[in-house]
């Protein structure tokens, strides 16, 4: 077929469109499998993860050091098993405490790593033993009310 002068421009146009669709699918939407970037993975089990989501930040002293890669429920212990992918520049001791905190009052939840004093470092596939579950506001309020009631009956 004879090439017209419009062919190149329209080809470019369609290619741009497809590129932006790919951008929408992978970078904006959640179609991406996962960008298997570098870093090592550690495992942490929580009693309750609250509103933690996959791809949430992992921070230490407020600095982002990794991302939450997977969250699954352990069918035997009924704990939430999370896989954290950490930046290889940072090493954490074996007795690191992982806890789930919230940034701000209504902000997103993230995993905080509190470094301990052990001289052995966590490596790929290791498990964080000490964890603190997410705070559930309803539970806290319930506990508070319960304590208050117990206090009142005790003083009388």
């Amino acid at each position: 077929m004879k090439r017209s002068k419009y062919d190149l421009a329209v080809g470019l146009f369609v290619a741009f469109g497809l590129m932006s669709l790919v951008f929408l699918a992978l970078k904006v939407g959640n179609l991406a499998g996962y960008d298997s970037g570098d870093g090592y993975r550690i495992e942490a089990r929580f009693d309750n993860i609250g509103g933690l989501k996959v791809r949430a930040a992992v921070k230490s002293a407020g600095v982002v050091v990794g991302r939450v890669e997977a969250i699954v429920l352990d069918p035997e212990t009924y704990e939430a098993k999370t896989v954290l992918r950490l930046d290889p520049r940072y090493r954490f001791s074996k007795d690191t405490i992982a806890s789930i905190l919230t940034s701000g009052l209504l902000g997103e939840q993230y995993v905080n790593l509190e470094v301990g004093g052990d001289s052995v470092y966590l490596g790929n596939g290791d498990r964080v033993v000490k964890t603190q579950p997410a705070m559930i506001l309803e539970k806290l309020i319930g506990q508070f009310l319960y304590n208050k009631a117990a206090e009142n009956t005790g003083s009388k």
């Binding site: 904006v28 939407g29 959640n30 791809r55 949430a56 982002v64 997103e108």
Partner: peptide
Amino acid sequence: DEGAFWSQMQASVDFRLDV
């Protein structure tokens, strides 16, 4: 934060439903 910007976006934009 760049990570939060993209990660929250990816977490809430569904390809089939939204795009």
